[in-house]
Each structure stands twice: as C-alpha cells, then as structure tokens.
Design a protein around this nucleic acid. Structure first.
Lengths: 246, 246
DNA sequence: CGCGCGCTTGAAGAGGCTCAAGAAAGGTGG
DNA sequence: CCACCTTTCTTGAGCCTCTTCAAGCGCGCG
C-alpha cells in the first residue's frame, strides 16, 4: 500500500520507483499531528511552507464579516495545500482541519528542488494544481446552477471519486466525517435543508449514510441525479505519455 | 499608455523596460479578432496555445446537460486564458467572447521560453495564476453565501477594481458590456431577479447603470453593501521586493 | 449521569423563480 | 432616415424552494 499522494499522482502518470522514493522521503519531513477543528493556516498568515495531507480531512474556508461561513474546498489525504502560495504576501482565506489530521510541512525550497530534479514529478504536481483549479470551477457551477439535491449529490460523488483515487474507498463505501453543518457550509444551504435533502437522497436509495460512513449503492444513478460528469477531475491518466517505463 | 497585461502585472512588481519590451513583442504574435458570442476554446478541445486578451471581454462557461449555463469567470483585457493547460488532455469547459475581442495566441513554447529567460516575468505570471485561483474561490463564497443584492454588488466591485488595474476606468465609471442575462449566468440568478436587484441598487444610489456604462458614485458604499474585501485580488504590489530598479 | 453536539421535525415566512407579456433600445436594410 | 426586426429590459402575478425559528431527540463522552 502506497502513500495517498503517490496513488493520486499515478492517476496522471506512472512514476518510477525513484520518483516514488523521493516523494516518500518528502512526506516524512516536518510531520505534524492536529486535532479536529484546528487551523493549519489562517487568513492573513504568510505561509513559507507547503502542507501535504497524509491522513484526515481539512478544508479551505472563509468567513464573511457577519459570520456567514463558506467552505471553499476540501483537502483529502494526498492533497497539497497551496502550491506556490509563497508568491503572495498573505493568505486570503484559512485552512482548517475537519478531523484529526497528519500533515507533512514541506519547505518551499525542498519542493522547488524536487520539482527541478524530477521533471515527471514536476508535471504531476502541475496536474494536481490544474485539477484543483478545475474542481474550484466545478464548485462555481454547483453553487450557481444546481438545486439542493443535485448539489449535495454532486459533492458526494466528487468526494467518493477523489477518495477512490487515493485508495480510501471499500467497494461502494467510504468514510464521511462531514457533519450536516459541514455539508451546509460547503453547499451554501441551511443545516435544516441539508438534513431534509439527505433524507430525500436516502429515500430515493441513492445513498446510505449512517454515522461516519457513506455507501453509494449505484454510483451511476447518483451521478445522474447530480448531473455529475467526472471529466473535470482529469483522471484518465492524461499524462501517460510521460509514464516511467520500468 | 501601455498594454493592459503590463499594467496588470505591474500591480505585482515593477518590470524593467526589457521585460516590458518582451511582453509587448509577445502580444503581437498570432493576433486574432473575434466577434461577440464566438467560442475561443470549446469543451473537449486540446489547446496548444495560450490566449491573451488584448481588448474586449470573454468568459469561461459551462453548460449542464439540461441547458443551464454558468459563467465561471470573466476575462478582461490583460487576462490570459489557461496558463499551463496543455498538461491536461482536454478542456473541461469553454471560453467564449462576450464582446468583439482581440487576442494574441501565444504558443506554449514561447511562454515557456520567456518565463525561463525572465524570472521577474515568470514570477508575475505566477502571481496572475494565483490571483485567478483566488478569484475563483471568492466566487465560491459569493454564490454560496451572498444574497442577490450582495452578489451582484460584489461582482460589479470586482469587475470595476480589475478594470481599474488595467487602466480601463475613467474616474468612477467603466464600461459594462454585460447584459442582464450575462449577469444572471454569472451570479446564478434569474434574469428577472437580476433586473429587480439592479433596480434596487439604483434606487439605493449605489450604481448608475445605463446602456453599456457603469458608474459607481461611492465605491466604499458599494463595497460595504457587497461585503467586498479586495484583499483576494492581491493588488498591493506584493512582489515589490522583485522590482526592477531602473 | 448529565452535558453538548449533532440530527430531526414542524410551521411560517421570505427570497427568488417561472410564466407571460409588453416596452425600449439597438442594429440592419432599403 | 425611416421601417422593421431582434435583443434586451421591465413589470405583474403566483408559486415553490429554501430559510428561519423553535423545540425535541439521541448518542457519545467526560
């Protein structure tokens, strides 16, 4: 079993064993453990290193002055927070944990060095960055056009497919540590309405959600209900022309 | 009067006259003119070059299967579509013009060459990319948390401030070629409601919108109404430590 | 055992949508 | 320069989705 990051990047291109070893080494630097509901970075901070999620869930979020809160994106194991942000003076949002989290804090220099020496890794990290941008765009569509049921279904599809990509699903089930309040903050809905919409999804046999576990009996059906098209996740080994041949 | 792109990048760092000359040369390559409502890139395309908007407005957009349409972001003069997308196999959205547009189509190689030879430009393009990501995140907040009036006000603030950054405002006025249908597609509201909300903004003396011209009599007031905080645009010459000293 | 957090339910109300139609503006060709 | 056509804007009315407020329940944990 390999690191989530490696599994994730191999959805783009096959890495050489040296590539993987470099990434494994990198993941062991500056390891930190955090509790749930802790901030990793706060709005206004000037980050000097990059955080790689080794385990647990985190999110970007932003508060409006009057307290409304929006979750802007989720970080799952294998995700990196903020490639290249050091160019900006200060964070315009915060990153916080949703569950207990283990991260590797990788100094800026270290990443630049690795990317410089390992072009295949560099390309794969680029792919990571571009996919994150694509996800953010899809969230724009999700919030702008989909109704409550589609919106929640879409989010669940995305999370499931992303978790599957890092080996964190079992059959058609995965962990779902988000509370209904978390889902509400991510989808721009009220907690009450999230609750009712989840019941609707359950009644339609599209999801089984109990405790912290999500099962999707028929992923295709859920995708149809959500108007979910996974192409924005660019998972078809799009960098296969770069594959290591060993 | 200089190119929008140069003005824009100089909000980040002061460029040398050589830097500027390089960018000016670049902007003269592969110039194309497009009418309003033409596609520059279509979902599914595999782009091999990068498009720099020289004049006019364009947007990213996406259709759902049932026809709903979301505008995902706006491209104004000086904006570049899709730095580095060539890593991805195919576009997951389209880019289309909103007005007649002039673009420079810059081959991938050319950009890489320029970025490689001119570190200050490279950093500035990075800044551009990161600001675009920040804008996309802010749109997530906008669609998720703000009500119709705040949402439209926020969008108008953003567009005004971005246009000011490329020298396309006159006092407190700017061009506003968007139709109400365009505003609706960008804000996830119905055309009817956009219309009524604009009337509300007019009645509150927050905007003067006539024909294709927008005037914001009191930007601070509009910002307050929108809960608009410009920090996400990272305009404070954050790269000033890189300034060319000539 | 009791407290707190998360989930659930009901009822009422608001914000935004749809449908429909007419008015104004803008562009085009004669 | 006018006549016509299309696009864009505007208005009214009714409805529906989602919100808010309020309260009760259940479960995990100290």
């Amino acid at each position: 079993m390999s690191l989530p990051l490696i599994q994730k990047l191999e959805q783009f291109t096959r890495l050489s064993s040296e590539d993987k070893e470099v990434l494994r080494q990198m993941s062991m630097e500056g390891v930190r453990h955090l509790d749930a509901r802790e901030d990793i970075i706060r709005e206004g901070d000037r980050p000097q290193s990059l955080n790689l999620i080794l385990s647990g869930w985190a999110c970007r979020y932003k508060h409006l002055e009057d307290g409304r809160r929006q979750i802007i994106s989720f970080f799952l194991p294998g995700d990196m927070c903020d490639n290249h942000v050091f160019i900006l003076r200060q964070m315009d949002h915060s990153v916080g944990t949703l569950t207990p989290v283990t991260i590797a804090q990788i100094p800026r220099r270290r990443i630049e060095e690795i990317a410089g020496q390992h072009p295949r890794i560099s390309q794969a990290l680029w792919w990571e960055t571009l996919v994150n941008a694509a996800i953010q765009r899809e969230w724009t569509v999700n919030l702008g056009q989909r109704d409550a049921l589609e919106r929640i279904a879409h989010l669940l599809c995305e999370l499931f497919v992303r978790l599957r990509g890092v080996g964190l699903t079992e059959g058609n089930s995965c962990e779902m540590p988000l509370t209904q309040a978390g889902l509400a903050d991510a989808t721009g809905l009220s907690v009450v309405h999230v609750n009712r919409t989840l019941q609707e999804l359950r009644a339609a046999k599209l999801i089984v959600l109990r405790g912290k576990s999500l099962t999707i009996p028929d992923l295709t059906a859920l995708q149809n209900a959500a108007l979910f098209n996974p192409n924005y996740l660019h998972l078809d080994r799009e960098g296969r022309h770069l594959d290591a041949n060993e």
